Amino acid sequence: MASIAVIGAGGTIGRGIVSEALSRGHRVTAVVRDPSGYTLRAEGLTVAAGDALDPAAVARVAQGQDVLVSAVGGGDGPGHAALIEPAARALVEGVRTLGAAAPRLIAVGGAGSLEAAPGVRVWDSPGLPEGLLQIMHAHGDAQDYYNGVEDVRWTVLSPAATIEPGDRTGSYRTGTEQLVTDDEGRSRISVEDYAVALVDEIETPRHIGRRFTVAH
Rank of each mutant, 00 (worst) to 15 (best):
V214P: 05
A71S: 14
Q134P: 00
A59M: 02
T39D: 14
A62I: 07
A48I: 08
G75P: 06
E150S: 08
G140M: 07
T12Y: 00
A9C: 11
I106G: 03
A117M: 01
D183P: 00
T97M: 12
V95C: 05
G140T: 12
W123V: 13
L198K: 10
G166W: 10
A42E: 15
A82Q: 12
P78A: 15
E20W: 04
G148T: 14
H26R: 07
P126Y: 04
V18P: 05
G94W: 07
A81F: 04
G110N: 07
A57P: 09
R33G: 13
S36E: 15
G127R: 11
E20F: 03
R206M: 00
V32S: 10
G16A: 14
A160R: 10
L132R: 09
I189A: 02
I7C: 03
I189V: 15
R186I: 02
R89Y: 06
V199P: 00
R206A: 08
A81V: 05
L98W: 13
A117K: 04
A21C: 09
S158Y: 03
A48T: 11
L45F: 09
A88W: 05
S187L: 02
A71G: 08
G185L: 08
S187A: 01
A52V: 08
R173Y: 09
T181G: 00
G77K: 07
T176C: 00
A56H: 09
A111Y: 03
Y172F: 15
G119W: 06
G50R: 03
E184S: 10
G50E: 08
G209S: 10
G175V: 07
I13D: 04
G11M: 04
R15S: 11
R153T: 13
D34S: 15
I189N: 05
V69H: 03
V180E: 11
D141C: 00
G10R: 05
V95G: 05
S187I: 02
H137A: 11
A88D: 09
V31E: 07
R27W: 01
D141W: 00
I17W: 05
A81R: 05
G166E: 13
A88L: 03
G94M: 06
A71Q: 09
V72H: 08
E43S: 13
G112T: 12
I208N: 04
W154A: 06
D200Y: 01
A49Q: 14
T213F: 00
G75D: 11
G25P: 10
L128C: 02
G11A: 05
G166F: 08
A82D: 11
L98C: 14
E130G: 01
G25M: 09
V108P: 01
A5S: 14
F212E: 10
R186W: 06
I13P: 00
Q178F: 07
R168M: 13
D76M: 08
V152Q: 09
A52W: 03
L68I: 10
A5H: 03
V149T: 09
L91T: 14
A62T: 10
Q65K: 15
G166K: 11
E115A: 04
Y172P: 14
P35K: 10
T46V: 01
L91S: 14
H216D: 15
V149Q: 04
G99I: 13
T155N: 06
I4A: 01
A161I: 06
G119A: 08
